[in-house]
Design a protein around this nucleic acid. Structure first.
Lengths: 189, 189
DNA sequence: GAAGGCATGTAAATCGTTACATGATTTA
DNA sequence: TAAATCATGTAACGATTTACATGCCTTC
């Protein structure tokens, strides 16, 4: 059994959660995993076809009204593939591409003013993600599933923390202090 | 002026910092920006050629011993392009792909045991990044530039915080409690 | 009747990793 | 003399985004 490609992983999981059309999967991704796992139609639809060809899902046309619609469900092989992935002990992949941080890395080439703005942009970015998560929070809390809510809290913890961290750098900079933040207060004894 | 592609952004900045060969740039990336901005030879060398063709950098062959070596520097246009990017007010891009979090998202389909292991994997991932950063920490602290050190501290703050967060989830799970972590103690009043 | 949501898809371009290929110099 | 490090590159593949194209249904 081939290892599932990245898009296949979300798809199988989302179908298991009852999201059974490409559109439906995309809609849920956009309000739930987007901040740590995005997906576009350009990936989703071709991958749904491939998964069907490989026998991990089956689809049937089920128009609702005159609107065409293809509804998928997991096959036994699909269930197994999903479970094997979830239970696998392979070190899970983790990739971050943070342009704001890269700018700060090159901060020695910036003026004081430019720097402050770059720091502000980082603070705002994390505040923005936090605010977006807080908006979907009540909705996620009331779902029948429990773990999507946990990942939302993980996102909240991360982005709130980083927003606060950058806010502190911003303040030190504003006071003309060295931006080198000492270790996190919680970490110090 | 075309906007710089992602790889061009690191390259120009790194050349500005005095890293003047493809190999040299890659070496620094691997011990400094890798945890938030990676780059491979497969991107670097072709992009160096493109940047030279576009007149943002100039290269000259400067063998050291019998070893061939192409040394680059920024042109005026390159300086300007770098600076324009650094000073631009465009919202910086931020992308995360976290497989471990995705597994947790589907945690309702896992057994208690599988779940604990997935949570542990997340904790370990962040601990691992933290440990790697701590190893390069003394080296980064003593550099003549100040801001690379700040990005290292940002990474430390983030990964230490997330390691602690997952550790707490792990403990709650071990005690058979609901994994839903309440708001961060610092955030509560 | 217009706007917004439901629904599916493709093409092109871009971006990125991995594996391969090569060879010199330095250090243990 | 073997291993590590310096050094440059390409080809194939895989992953992802963006823009385009289409059309029905529901609600205002």
């Amino acid at each position: 059994m081939q290892t599932l490609n990245p898009t296949a992983r979300v798809i199988l999981g989302m179908i298991k959660l009852g999201r059974n059309t490409g559109y439906d999967i995309k809609s849920l991704v956009d309000v739930s995993t987007r901040h740590f796992w995005a997906a576009s139609y350009g990936q989703l639809y071709p991958e749904l076809k491939r998964l069907e060809q490989d026998g991990l899902i089956t689809g049937r046309d089920e128009p609702s009204g005159g609107r065409r619609r293809r509804v998928y469900e997991l096959t036994e092989d699909g269930e197994r593939a999903l479970h094997d992935w979830l239970a696998s002990d392979e070190k899970p992949s983790y990739e971050l591409r943070d342009e704001g941080l890269l700018k700060i890395f090159f901060g020695d080439s910036m003026s004081a003013d430019e720097l402050v703005r770059a720091v502000q942009a980082n603070r705002r970015l994390h505040e923005g993600v936090g605010a977006a998560l807080r908006e979907i929070e009540p909705h996620a809390r009331d779902a029948e599933t429990r773990f999507p809510y946990l990942t939302l809290q993980a996102g909240l913890a991360e982005h709130d923390h980083m927003a606060a961290w950058w806010r502190e750098v911003e303040e030190r900079l504003a006071r003309g202090e060295d931006p080198h933040v000492p270790a996190d207060p919680k970490e110090q004894q």
